[in-house]
Write a protein that binds this DNA or RNA. Structure first.
Lengths: 354, 354
DNA sequence: TTGTATGCGTTATCAT
DNA sequence: ATGATAACGCATACAA
């Protein structure tokens, strides 16, 4: 341990030699396998531990994984690293996984960058033990579907975190949560306040991903016998600037909406700014409601009404499902449903019309 | 390739057999090593490739890494995953690294959670080829310093992304950038506008990490012959709520400040809200300036003045330094300095006093 | 141009 | 209670 210019990393052999035992003994001591069947004298045990400390020996995960067959690693794929909602999911996944001794390999699918296929290939290359994904990107990409099928064929356990009615029904475990109900709630609230023209800023890269919200929005209007004016739904990209521009466009309509649903809180911030730049006030002239309840939402001025999923819990549940399947690959596939809830704040305060 | 109930993953051997060649040939074809010294007939080459596709063969990264000695993986440690500024750094690192065929292992040091030592141990365990870190957490933790020393002893290349005067001077390559100059600039601006009492919300978990800003703030006041009122510097935690409370406290002073520097944009949002809740207006009653230029800053109402580092570029430069050292471990250590710039927006608009 | 042999650091199955 | 020894899947020097 003194000095160490260009010291080669110590291996089990070095430890064994220093401790005066065999490699197997070192392995037994380190893996606590001893208690089960192969007993090790306490004195030997201490000698080994001392040698480990002496050499700063750290086992090589590559060799362990190669030999044991398990990398103790879980892949996690999220659609957009810039959306705080997905950090929460990632946080939950990380906590639960590391509690069980697993590591996380996080990938996001940025709009233009790495393709989903590349990511799958890479995860396959690294021999992850299992995969958790928010599979929004699967809707469009045949390549991705193929590569996913490949993982499934190799019996890599996969857990999806997704909305209820998200089309494709793979044989995977799922954590299900969407904003359908909260959308009905907020629409009911707005309609009861007297809003007649309610806009929708639909800024999302994978079109179908917001259908839970969009469909509920439409159904609410129909149920209230209000017209479905296509002008009121503006599709745009997923950046704040996109929603800023979309909102300016929407509020430029001859008959401008008096309330706005925005696909997520991040984009709602752009909407708020656009409204302000048009010299309109929230909620006096236009009410606004977002989705996700990002931590910032309550600190905005005005505070943003929104809907909230418990992202962390979604992540934790996903890991739980994965670990269960890792233990018993043949158990029946499970769905876990998690509710979302509406949080009304200043931005949908007392309505402009009533 | 048809079906595949519980199919064992194909190995090089399977590919070799299907293609009717030896394992070495498969390896040569896949690694393109052929061109250099060992030529392979085009026909053989095609047979191998066909077999690979047929079997959906994906090489095992664990075995490759074990054999080759390189994991093609770079560790990246950032202090706080919730601060958008560090995503930008991570983005830059990711881009440049993946262009060079390297993967990223991202860890953040969350306040209470994983210790720095655990993270170092883990990275050591996984045998990363190199490490890039924003080493704020090193200031306090002796454990972390020890483990870092361990990596250095093992000759794992380390690149630090840090402020100029950040104490410890390891033998590592560094990307250096701080907010010292921009702080002088904004202070000059505010003082010239007539501000006399300028507050500082210092919300940061590792106290020294904001010294670039705090010291420049103090020096500016001294240079202007203004008193250094300790009441005007409020230390608090690193959450938005913390800065919200800290700002309320600061503005509750008998002689309240007319301008506020906030340690980063995230916390500036809490400050803006606190000001608004006290029925004061920005910038009419209180001017506010943050740091980092998060993408949201310009969409806030009022738009937030801030300072900006090019986080992405910092990340890219860090990777460049790392790759250079990977190629030649003995070259002299380098520092790369990157400037920050001040961005004035509405929140420091025309001053209240002049 | 291709095949053979060896070792990377582990874990696990045997005999001692 | 411990010490050899055989895989794990791959890369590569060397022989054919």
């Amino acid at each position: 341990m003194r000095s160490g210019e260009n010291m080669k990393r110590p291996t089990q052999v070095d430890v064994a030699q220093l401790a005066g035992v065999s490699r197997a003994t070192v392995s037994y001591v380190l893996n606590g396998q001893a208690d089960g069947r192969v007993p090790i004298s306490e004195e030997t045990r201490q000698r080994v531990l001392k040698a480990v400390a002496e050499l700063d020996y750290v086992p090589d995960a590559r060799a362990q994984a190669l030999r044991s067959g398990s990398t103790k690693t879980i892949g996690l794929i999220i659609p957009d690293i810039h959306n705080p909602h997905f950090w929460e999911v990632a946080d939950g996944v990380e906590q639960e996984a590391s509690a069980a001794g697993y590591h996380i390999l996080l990938s996001s699918i940025p709009p233009g960058k790495k393709s989903a296929e590349d990511i799958f290939k890479d995860l396959s290359h690294r021999r992850i033990d299992g995969l958790i994904m928010v599979p929004s990107f699967l809707y469009r990409s045949e390549e991705a579907q193929k590569t996913l099928a490949y993982l499934l064929k190799r019996r890599v356990p996969v857990v999806g975190i997704m909305a209820e009615h998200s089309g494709a029904n793979y044989h995977i475990d799922r954590v299900i949560s969407d904003y359908r109900n909260t959308t009905f709630e907020v629409m009911t609230h707005l309609l009861s306040l007297g809003h007649q023209r309610i806009g929708f800023i639909y800024g999302i890269d994978v079109p179908d991903l917001g259908n839970d919200r969009l469909f509920a929005y439409r159904e609410s209007l129909q149920a209230a016998n209000l017209p479905l004016d296509p002008e009121l739904v503006v599709h745009c990209g997923s950046t704040v600037e996109d929603s800023y521009q979309a909102t300016r466009q929407l509020l430029g309509l001859a008959a401008r909406p008096t309330a706005l649903l925005v696909i997520n809180d991040l984009l709602a911030i752009g909407a708020l700014r656009a409204i302000s730049d048009l010299n309109l006030r929230v909620p006096h002239d236009v009410s606004v409601c977002g989705y996700d309840n990002i931590p910032l939402a309550k600190y905005l001025t005005p505070a943003l009404s929104t809907a909230s999923k418990d992202g962390e819990k979604m992540g934790r549940e996903a890991v739980r499902l994965l670990l269960a399947r890792l233990q018993d690959p043949d158990q029946p596939y499970q769905d876990i449903r998690l509710p979302a809830r509406l949080i009304l704040r200043e931005s949908t305060g007392p309505a402009p019309l009533s």
